[in-house]
Structures are given as structure tokens and as C-alpha cells.
Write a protein that binds this DNA or RNA. Structure first.
Lengths: 197, 197
DNA sequence: CAATTTCCTTGACATTTGTCAAGATATACC
DNA sequence: GGTATATCTTGACAAATGTCAAGGAAATTG
């Protein structure tokens, strides 16, 4: 008798709204798992991103290339959903590149299967909407953060909005990029911060 | 015989997906119109924002107050939907303030009525999702813009992404704030830009 | 349309942050 | 585990942008 796999992403979705057993069964049959080595590019800017990933364990960043420089716009870790949102949800080519910053175990579902789920299971629409709102809020927070005038201000806002633990887990150059600060300046701000505190 | 009012917002929604005549009728009965004087605050940070506005004609900005300074995060004009998204969609207190920058005619619908529409008319969910995705993309664009390192770079990205016409319509101090530039610097960059071009 | 207020521009200067270079740490790889 | 590579730190300096102040332009108000 075959063992049923346990998918963390299903638990994750259940916390948003209850899933019918049919929908759970659907996920059970359509989720794929994979482990990516640190540094792997999941999806390149300009390619179609047709997967929605759930990070079981690990870290992924999204970045854009502007004026020949990488600009990191988000970093996600364990128990978060990630995709190249603009590309995935409109089923168009992604504008950002996604890359793992640690060895990363993911569960994922394809665009087509997600659309199927939306068509077949009414409760899926509810979940999908809730997720979009959640993601919108993240985007709004990032927007606000990056408009704080001083580098120090952005750094502290970043810490105060629940990201402090990333200091010990993410290479600082990516945090610096996300905060629109040069690594050298980041290092200096961090020194001051550790001194005060 | 009573004249049926013509609501631009209904045309706006029809462009996203077809509306059943029942849904159109529902909007017909539940849309309110209003004209706000320039400078009016529609919804203050910390208050519940329970309306989704469609700008018939005019201009509205959203801003946050951080470190005692106003930070404008978006500016919308004719034929756009606006609300304090985070607040409205989660039915929580808004974190931003919305203010008209011109005399502004709006059509709006309440949170409760929007929820009713979502419950009663399946096609409304489709529209709602499409709108959320559209708004997400806007937010992502703003995020990217504000992470461009140089003030000049942000200014040019702003122009190149279809906002040039705002130069002649929006007081520059708000554009400057949205681009995270001081008004004095904005003025200097603009002078250079006009010289070159 | 005159008066008042707000907004924009310009100059001089201060401050922050970026740049470059070198050495120190940490991490990855054979 | 030792070597190679990447990352972080620090200093000296340069460049970009912010700040302050004053005058001019534009818009608003009575």
C-alpha cells in the first residue's frame, strides 16, 4: 500500500480557508517537489514563469536588472509562497529573476493546474483572492520602505517590520541591495547599530 | 419616466470581463457619485476606508507619514480605481491618507456592497481578481522605481513608464516625493532634462 | 484684480552616501 | 583540511543629494 505524501503547502492553504477533500485530493495529485542547490536560478527574467512555489525550507530572492545592475526586490524563506508574480498571474514572461540563496526544498504547482483548481473548486477562488491581497500588502510595504529617505531609516524600518532574523541568515549584500544601500554603507550602518544596541 | 444614470465605472469594469445584466443592475443601484474639492482628504490614515472609488475626472494621491514627513506613494487620475487598498480589502484601518489634488468627480461603491456583489455574481470574482493582479503590478512597478539608486535614474524611469503627462498636471512637489527626491533636486533634474531634450 | 499664499527656482554650503582599493573573514570546493 | 573564492570591513576621497535661505512665479482667495 502506497504512502500518501504530506505536503506542507496544503497545510499552509488550509490556514487561509478550509479545503474540501476533493480540492485536497487535487493538490495531492498535482503538487511536485524539488530541491534546488544554493545559487540556482529558478526562472530567468524574460522567460515564462509557470510555477507557483511553496518554500518548504530555504531561501529565494527576486531581482531585476536595471542599468546593468541587479536590484533585489524581495527575499522569501521557509513557509512562504513565491513566484514571479507579474509573470505568473498574467501568464506572461517574467520581468524578474528568481534565485535560491540556500539549498531550497520547494513544493510547486503549475499555472495550468492552478487554473484548473480555480475552475473546479469554488473555495479556491477565496484562497486565491486572500493570497493576492496578502501579496499586495507585501508589495506595498516594500514600496514604502524604499521611499524612506535615509539609508539608516530604511535599515531600521526593515528591522522593525519583522525582518531582524534575516541579518543572521542572508548574505548582507542582498539585504543591502533590497534596501537600496551599497554594501560598504550597509556594513557601516550595521556597525553603528551593534554598538548602540 | 426616470432617466437611467450612466456610470463610467461600469464601462470600466466591462472592459475587464462581460457583466451580466443583473450585475449591471446591481451596480446601477449601488453606485454613489460625489465631487470633492481639490485638497480634500477622502480617508485618513488610521480610519476605516470602506469605499472603492472610481475617478471620473480629477486626481488623487495616497501618502504615508513616516518620521513626521509625508511620503506620497501613488498618484491616480481619470478612469482609475483607487482605494486605500490594504485597508479596504482587509476591511481594516487604512495606513495611508488619500487626498484629492484637483477637484475630483468620483463614483464609488461600499465595501459591503462589493462583498455582496462578490457573493451574488460569479463573474464579479473574475473581475475582482483581475483588478487585484493589475494593482499588484502597479505596486511592483513602484517598488522597482524607488529602488533605482540615482535620483536621475528614478526620474527617467518614471517618464519612460508612461507618466510623462503628469509633469504638466501634478504639482512637482508630489512627484518629487513619490520619486524620493527633494523638490529642489527635482527642479534641478528637470532643468537638465528640458535642456537636453 | 489685488493681495496672499503656495509653489518653484537658484545659489551656497553641509551631509550623506557612493566609489575605489586593500586587507580581513568567512565560505565553498577539491 | 587546505586552497581558492566570495563576502565583509575599513579608510580616504569623490560625487550626489539634502538643507537652508531668498527671490520670483504661479495659483488661490476675497
Amino acid at each position: 500500500m502506497k504512502n500518501k505524501k504530506v505536503y506542507l503547502s496544503i497545510f499552509f492553504l488550509e490556514k487561509i480557508a478550509p479545503l474540501s477533500s476533493e480540492l485536497k485530493q487535487f493538490f495531492q495529485s498535482n503538487i511536485t517537489t524539488h530541491i534546488y542547490k544554493k545559487g540556482t536560478v529558478l526562472n530567468e527574467s524574460g522567460q515564462l514563469c509557470d510555477s507557483l512555489y511553496f518554500i518548504k525550507k530555504g531561501m529565494i530572492r527576486g531581482y531585476h536588472v536595471i542599468e546593468a545592475k541587479e536590484i533585489t526586490t524581495w527575499i522569501s524563506i521557509d513557509n512562504e509562497l513565491v513566484t514571479s508574480i507579474t509573470g505568473f498571474f498574467k501568464n506572461e514572461n517574467a520581468r524578474e529573476t528568481m534565485q535560491t540563496l540556500e539549498d531550497t526544498a520547494v513544493e510547486y504547482i503549475s499555472y495550468d493546474n492552478l487554473q484548473k483548481a480555480l475552475a473546479l473548486f469554488p473555495e479556491m477562488n477565496q484562497i486565491f483572492t486572500a493570497l493576492l491581497i496578502e501579496y499586495y500588502i507585501h508589495a506595498e510595504n516594500r514600496t514604502l520602505l524604499s521611499r524612506i529617505p535615509s539609508a539608516k531609516g530604511r535599515f531600521h524600518y526593515f528591522l522593525e517590520t519583522g525582518n531582524k532574523f534575516l541579518l543572521n541568515r542572508t548574505p548582507h549584500k542582498y539585504l543591502a541591495s533590497m534596501l537600496n544601500i551599497r554594501p560598504e554603507t550597509f556594513s557601516r550602518i550595521l556597525k553603528d547599530f551593534n554598538r548602540e544596541d
